[in-house]
Write a protein that binds this DNA or RNA. Sequence first.
DNA 1: TGTGCCGGGAC
DNA 2: GTCCCGGCACA
Length: 482
Amino acid sequence: MTSKRLLEQPRAGDSTREGGEPVTGRAFKTHAPDEGALRNSGKEISPNGHYYTPTRERHYIHKKFACGREEDEQSSGGVLKHGCPANRLILNGFRLQDQTHMEARSPVRGPGEPGCRLPSPETPRPHMSSIIPVPHDRRPSGLADKEVMAATVLTTLSTSPLVLNPSSSASGADLAGKGWKESLSASYSSSTSGNWSWDASDQSVPSTPSPPLSNDAGKSFLLSSQSDDNIEETESTHFLFEDHIPRKRKNSMKVMFKCLWKNCEKVLSTSSGIQRHIRTVHLGRNGDSDYSDGEEDFYYSEIEVNMDTLSEGLSNLTPTSPTTSGPPPVFPILTCDASRSEPAHMIHTPLSQSAPSALCHIRTDHAYQATTPVSIPSMPSDPPHSEDRISVSWQSPPVIYKALPGPMTQIRTVSIGEKRQPVNHTTVSKTHASTTSTSKPTTGTRKPRGEAKKCRKVYGMEKRDLWCTACRWKKACQRFTD
DNA sequence: TGTGCCGGGAC
DNA sequence: GTCCCGGCACA
């Protein structure tokens, strides 16, 4: 042993003690770019280098998911909202007058901004009635319902496949459907009240056969508003799963009411429902009171939903694995400002939390000595693909998801063959031995080796001083992780 | 057989 | 705590 050390040590000692120190100099030059790169990658997340700060992490999630570009929020300080691609995307689903409706209104009201709930009486109300013939005397919501239902019936009955032809309505049906595939999915996860909501039960419908549609659509709409849920469900089922028959195409357009309040994607099927939603949620009025001064009219718009396109989008959203039986999937692009508007619903979903974590790489030479055991199991860092999440379920069991409610503490990218796994596995197996039984079929604690080259291969034994500390100490390589 | 690295020892 | 290495498992 001593002789062995004498053989190796002088080589390292020569490189570090001699005056010129050519090797050491090279060593630092070689290390510097790596560390710089690491810092730069960290800068993306946090200029302060506080990768683990929960607020920062959440803020980053918000930024990435809210507007896609950090500059959107940074430059605007959270005030400029109209550049949000999500909003633009949704706006594309509106008719032209709806966009005008909203844009003319938004700068005045500033909905979605805290502390800007009720407009002042002096605020000039935009006169949009010339663009959209919305009756202002909607106070009796029941009457409004009937009006809308009557209009809907007429629309439905008069809608023919020719109307759906893109040549006749350039941006109408397709764009509306495309936009609503996404806007509805937000309502799908965040809807709390109202007559119409797209909740997870709708996605479970494929397992049940479509009931025979005996009643006509017109009859359905003539029913009372209390039965809207059933109607909607029936209709959705009809549109989603019935074979391609002419009648389906005939009824594929549906008038819905979308809340235009900032960052609110609520979509309801009745005007009374959307008015109640706006009154209670956004205007802060008593939900039980039917009093309405018409204010709500400015906060929602009618839209025509192409149920065919919508059904396509929803069919793609159907969970494909029985393991995803927990929370319904949430689509990050629609969680714009979700932490502000509806924090209880949107934050703790696996997708919304997992995606940004892929950008957090914590790689330090000595990390294996301090941070290894706790960094991995605290957070599922899978990419936002369900298949990937499932494939690595050994390291992100439901237990981990349930431990998420608190702020994230540490995040680290973990790939399937990651070197960190042995440490994680041993740590978890002590506490959750039964849940991690699928991690490795072979006995023992060792894991399959990663694909990445290690310091030994990269630098060779001759340049052992260039190795990372872990490799030099025969520990898991920290420089070339898998 | 070379390599990665766990577990443990020396300091 | 750092530093190092025996020895095992894997490719």
